[in-house]
Design a protein around this nucleic acid. Structure first.
Lengths: 190, 190
DNA sequence: GTCTATAAATAGATAGAC
DNA sequence: GTCTATCTATTTATAGAC
């Protein structure tokens, strides 16, 4: 695989990633990706056989990004409570994108739930990654039902994202992220 | 407007309502609605000028349905706490649909956030209706920041719906609906 | 009011020149 | 590896017969 080929492939993935977030999977056409990247439509099929393949590559790319962010978070501190608070900050740093287009993970998984069960399963892998990482930190805090609590954290962030996006209310998002941090701080007292 | 015409129009709205939930707005074509209702595609334009008009009619129809449910809930009891608990039960009765396709309100509003700001504003009206009704009950309980708390209830239900749908986990939905009721019961002690 | 036929645009996907 | 041209199917929407 040549350097330029890998570059083109990566450019397609990154453009598709952004478009899947801002316009949705089904509303993103090959023409859209072509316009953004400058790569002709027909060339896409050299790198991906189908549109579904692009989605799979985008999810794999997201998994890699989140794994790197979580690893960096683990290297920064050994305190699981601090790690959980950093986790909230990571997603908080994407606040503007959430207000405009919703959570990239949640909105993609929700969209694909209506479409193709296989694609939804693929997009859910990002949830799996975050859930397992959160559960690991909760385990270190000595909490029980760590997986369920991890899902509760994700559910809370998803719900806040939905409302904040629906009302384009950045203050609502900020306030609830802070309350979520307080909730997480309360975990240590159990 | 004749009887049969109104009937056809209503049949289109109800079929579109279900399809917008199970497949999404953008993934629902006139052909899909035609297949379900048996009404030819071309006939749709006698009742609606555009697909957007169908969405508007669907949202208006949903608003009417929810208004009737909330009114019935108000007639059933004067206790605002009981009304809030009944509210959770109403959405809980649609559990199977939430598992399969997500919350009809949340998923539609999220989808349209990526598409057309005007359509999102229209679909958000259902959130507005529920928010205001919840806030009214919270006011009766003597709570402050009733609108913010109402949004918190909606956010919590949305988040739980996203996770329950992603993992097709009916038990998770049920457990969190019960916890939400406990949370609401806690409101009276403030 | 109801339906058929069809327009005009766009989708995902393919073939093949270079 | 890269790009143009094109195929086939489907989309929203229109025209017009009945």
């Amino acid at each position: 695989m040549g350097t330029k080929g890998a570059s083109n492939r990566q450019r397609i993935i990154e453009a598709a990633d952004r478009l899947f977030h801002t316009r949705g999977y089904n509303q993103t056409s090959f023409s859209d990706i072509s316009e953004v990247t400058g790569i002709p439509r027909g060339n896409f099929y050299y790198y991906f056989r189908t549109k579904d393949d692009i989605l799979n590559a985008v999810v794999e790319d997201r998994l890699g990004s989140y794994r790197r962010m979580l690893s960096a978070c683990e290297r920064a501190t050994d305190d699981p409570r601090q790690r959980l608070l950093s986790f909230v900050d990571i997603l908080d740093s994407n606040a503007e994108g959430i207000i405009q287009s919703g959570c990239p993970i949640g909105s993609l998984t929700s969209e694909l739930a209506k479409d193709d069960p296989e694609l939804q399963l693929k997009s859910r892998e990002v949830f799996d990654l975050l859930r397992d990482w959160l559960a690991k930190q909760l385990d270190m805090l000595g909490l029980e039902n760590s997986t369920q609590r991890a899902l509760d954290i994700l559910a809370r962030m998803q719900g806040v994202s939905i409302i904040a996006c629906a009302y384009k209310d950045r203050a609502y998002l900020q306030r609830n992220m802070d309350e979520l941090k307080g909730w997480i701080n309360g975990f240590t007292m159990n």
